[in-house]
Each structure stands twice: as structure tokens, then as C-alpha cells.
Computed example of a mutant assay.
Amino acid sequence: MSEAEPVAYEVRGSTAVVTMDRPDYRNAQNSVMTYALDRAFQRAVDDDDVKVIVLAGAGKHFSAGHDIGTPGRDVDVHYDNEAIIWWDHVGREGGDQRYAREMEVYLGMCRRWREIPKPVIAMVQGACIAGGLMLAFVCDLIVAADDAFFADPVVRMGIPGVEYFAHPWVLGPRAAKEILFTGDRFTAQRAYEWGMVNRVVARDSLEAETFAIADRIAAMPRFGLALTKRAVNQCEDAMGMRNGMDSVFGLHHFAHAHNAEVGADSLGGMDAKSMKSAGS
């Protein structure tokens, strides 16, 4: 796939496979990818023959997270406001620009995808970092290869976690604090022990195991699956996830503003290279 369309789409039986396809950049997420993902998910929702969706990443890694330094980074590119109703971020300044963009492309899109009425399975290998972790969080199940590793290291930027802040609900409060306070990577096995991951399988069995689960789910009634997914999501929100996430999104942007006021930029002077050298 070209940089202009960095998401592949195919249907295998009753399962749609949505694949992030920027392997040269560890599937870093720019806005072009975000909207390509949204189109692919919508295509799967509209196809009555599709019962389950698998989200995958091409190459060695699932996703290294938000694009903060590739040649395809497109922070100043117009988007079409599919997730929320707000003005465009292009041509805005300061917090207006950052808030509008991140509410749409990150928090808004993740919430939109969490509400997909068909089961979504993340098939994770290699790196699943920061924004990649958000994509895994919105999926209903996570099947991880034994070489998968996870992290949300943005506290190194002075920022309290990524925009879709599901950590306390997905990991539990103490595990969430550990991974955020340290910025350390954690293994697929540790994620399984914390309840974040459903299964850990050998790397060469990842695809077969994921599609076997998808086939079992696809045998269930489609409307029953949709209602069950909605039931669990509603209970999760009743436990405070949506309101908590809204409050943390404000803290996230306060951190951006603080960084911009006291330093060189909103990311605390960090870039892709410095984040990687620090252990990400």
C-alpha cells in the first residue's frame, strides 16, 4: 500500500481484516491512517456478511503509536470531522489547534471505534506503544504474540498518558500507575496476568489462533453480539470510564500547554528519536 492509503482491507469468510500498512515506520499513526482506518471499519460494519473484525499491523510491529516524526506526519492537514462536531484545527493556534485535532483524531475516533456494533479483535505482535495501545484498548479482545510488548511512555513528555485514557479500567489502578510512572515496556504475558490481553500465543501461531477465535464468535447471532457488546460497554461506562476519560483529557491538554509555555514545544522537547532512546 502507498503512503496515500496506509490501510489494507480484505474479507476472509465472515471476518474483515483491517491492516495498518506503514511497516517502514512501525505503523505509526498519522491522520491519513486514522481516516483510512475509519473508512475500513465503516466498510466492515456495512457488510452484512462480515460478523467479526480483526485489526492487525503489517510487518514486525502492531503500532509504534502516534506519528511524531516520520516524513508522512500530517499534523497540519485538514480532516473531515467524522468523530465529533467541532471546527477544523488547521490555521488555529496554541491550545485551540491541539485540542481540536486530538479530540477528533485521537479521543473521538477511538470512542467511535469502541462503539462498532461488531466484535473487534486486535491481533498484536511486536511493539504496541502509546497510540498503538489506544487502538488495542478499543478492541473487544486482544490476542498477542509472545513477542508483543506494550507501553505508554508519554509521562516522559510530562503528559499523563495518551488521549484515550482507559488504563485504570483495562489494567486496574495499580498496574496503570506502574506502567505510567515508569514508562517501562511490559510483556504480553504480564498484560495477560493483568487481564488486558485475552490470550498469548506463539508468534507463528498468532494468525491461526486469532482467526479461530473469530470463527467461533462468528457462529453467534449478529444482533445478539451487537447487543452484548453494547451491554458490556454500558456497564464499563457506568463504572466511570467515559467521565474519567473526559477529565483526564483535560489534564492531558493542560500538560501540553504547560510544556509549550515553559519549553520549546508541547511535547516537552521529546521526539521519536529521543523517546526511542529513552526506552520506548
Rank of each mutant, 00 (worst) to 15 (best):
L133K: 08
I142V: 15
M196A: 07
Q125I: 01
G161M: 10
I159E: 02
F186C: 13
Y164L: 12
D184K: 04
R174G: 00
G91H: 13
L107D: 00
V154Q: 02
G158L: 07
A191Q: 04
A176Q: 04
P117W: 11
R174Q: 14
P168M: 08
V201T: 13
C110M: 14
V201I: 11
F181T: 11
E102I: 08
G195N: 04
I179F: 07
G126V: 04
P117G: 10
C139D: 03
Y99K: 03
V154Y: 04
R114C: 02
G94I: 08
K177G: 13
G183W: 10
L206H: 03
M134L: 07
G91K: 12
Y106V: 01
G195W: 10
C110N: 11
W113E: 07
S205G: 01
G91S: 10
I179H: 06
L107C: 01
N198H: 15
R112Q: 09
L171V: 08
F181K: 12
L180D: 00
E104N: 06
L107R: 00
A202N: 06
E102D: 09
G132W: 01
A122S: 14
A166N: 07
Q189S: 12
V124K: 01
A122D: 05
R174Y: 09
R92N: 03
R199L: 15
E93G: 05
R114E: 11
V138Y: 14
A175N: 15
D96V: 11
M123T: 06
D147L: 06
G195Q: 05
G95T: 14
W113S: 06
G195R: 05
I179R: 05
R112G: 00
V105C: 05
C139W: 01
D140P: 02
R112M: 10
P160I: 14
E93D: 15
G108T: 01
R203Y: 08
G172I: 05
P168R: 06
A127E: 08
I179L: 11
A176K: 05
G126T: 05
A127F: 02
P119C: 12
L107E: 00
I142M: 05
Q125T: 10
P119W: 08
H167K: 03
A176T: 08
E93C: 02
R174W: 12
G95C: 08
